[in-house]
């Protein structure tokens, strides 16, 4: 049987819509701001580092995408670029560095070793850093061409723009010091 109460949710829905519209505007604005001010932390372990230098310096120039400044403290960065092979002895260190980066944070796996272990299919190498930390963009190649890295940065920017951003994020703080995922 119909009653007047049935109409109440419609009103709250409109209010949700209005809030959602404002939050959407804020989210888009924050996404636009964040995607053009990526402060990177290069976790360089291997030969892909040479290619990273090429990308970061004048010829290919990451500055055109707003990702110019490498910060050498993870607390000042929001994009972790894992460049090169990560072996099992180093895995806890990479995890610690990831935990130290402040929110919001994104991770790029630079090169095939960071993405999947590459041809180091052996006892010593982590078979892709996604076994330790979450990864947003994978850039394959051994080493990747600078154009591939720029493509990865642009993909990441598109992803950041599509994500939900909030002025004040009330989601619970992540628990640090968890046991690493075992394989």
């Amino acid at each position: 049987m119909a009653s007047e109460l049935d109409t109440v949710p419609v009103i709250t829905t409109r209010r949700d819509e209005a809030q959602g519209f404002l939050q959407g505007l804020v989210s888009k604005g924050l996404g636009w701001a964040r995607k053009y001010s990526l402060f990177q932390y290069p976790f360089v372990t291997a030969c892909c580092g040479m290619e990273y230098m090429t990308v970061a310096s004048a010829r290919y120039d990451l500055d055109r995408f707003g990702a110019a400044l490498p910060r050498f403290s993870p607390r000042q960065a929001d994009l972790l670029i894992v460049v090169g092979t990560v072996n099992c002895k180093q895995a806890p260190i990479l995890r610690r560095v990831y935990e130290q980066i402040t929110e919001p944070k994104w991770v790029m796996a630079f090169g095939v070793c960071a993405s999947s272990g590459g041809f180091y299919d052996n006892y010593a190498t982590v078979q892709g850093i996604d076994r330790i930390i979450p990864v947003d963009v994978y850039v394959p190649g051994c080493p990747p061409r600078p154009e591939q890295v720029l493509d990865g940065i642009m993909l990441l920017q598109r992803k950041i723009q599509g994500q939900e951003h909030k002025l004040i994020d009330r989601k619970p703080l992540p628990v640090v010091g968890q046991t690493p995922t075992t394989r």
Binding site: C88, A91, N122, Y123, V126, P180, T181, T182
Partner: peptide, 9 residues
């Protein structure tokens, strides 16, 4: 391919 579990820091 004798992999071993990752260890704690």
């Amino acid at each position: 391919k004798g992999r071993q579990p990752l260890v704690q820091e």
